[in-house]
Structures are given as structure tokens and as C-alpha cells.
């Protein structure tokens, strides 16, 4: 999944939604953090999303246990 405009938009919406939900639930520390550091948090979130969760097998031209 490449970093693109759709992903960025998705993540921005998610961060906004999270901040609002935290505020509505009375979790002011989290709400303030997400709102005050929105730009940085969006970058962190995009980077996290782009990281693969599973690793692929190595090239079959490498003998794994040699």
C-alpha cells in the first residue's frame, strides 16, 4: 500500500474522529494530544499503516538454513 492522497485523507479522518470520541468520553488528555499534535500524529499513523505486518519468505535462491 503506497502513501497516497486517499490514505492520507483516511488517516486524517480517523485522527479527527478519535480526537472527537476522546473528547466526548471525557478523555481530555488523549483528546488534547490528538488535536494539538494532529499533523505529527497523522504522519506517525501513515508510517504505521504502511509498515507490513507480516514478513514474506526470503528469496528461494537463498538456502535458509545453510
Amino acid at each position: 500500500m503506497a502513501d497516497n492522497a486517499d490514505l492520507r485523507l483516511d488517516v486524517q479522518k480517523e485522527v479527527n474522529r478519535l480526537a472527537a470520541e476522546c473528547k466526548a468520553s471525557g478523555f481530555d488528555n488523549a483528546a488534547r494530544y490528538l488535536a494539538d499534535n494532529r499533523t505529527a500524529v497523522v504522519e506517525i499513523a501513515i508510517k504505521a499503516r504502511l509498515e507490513p505486518k507480516k514478513r514474506d519468505l526470503p528469496s528461494p535462491f537463498v538456502y535458509s538454513m545453510q
Binding site: 494530544y33 499534535n37 505529527a40 506517525i44 508510517k47 504505521a48 499503516r49 509498515e51
Partner: peptide, 20 residues
């Protein structure tokens, strides 16, 4: 950093593993 390293690392992990 704007975000302290500890918080940055936690935020990253939470987004990666959908903990929010």
C-alpha cells in the same frame, strides 16, 4: 521532537495494530 519519543512509539504501535 514535537511528540516525545515514548509517546511517538506508543502512537505508532497503536495505529499499526489497530488498538484505538
Amino acid at each position: 521532537h514535537d511528540v516525545p519519543p515514548y509517546l511517538k512509539s506508543v502512537t505508532h504501535s497503536w495505529f499499526k495494530w489497530q488498538k484505538f
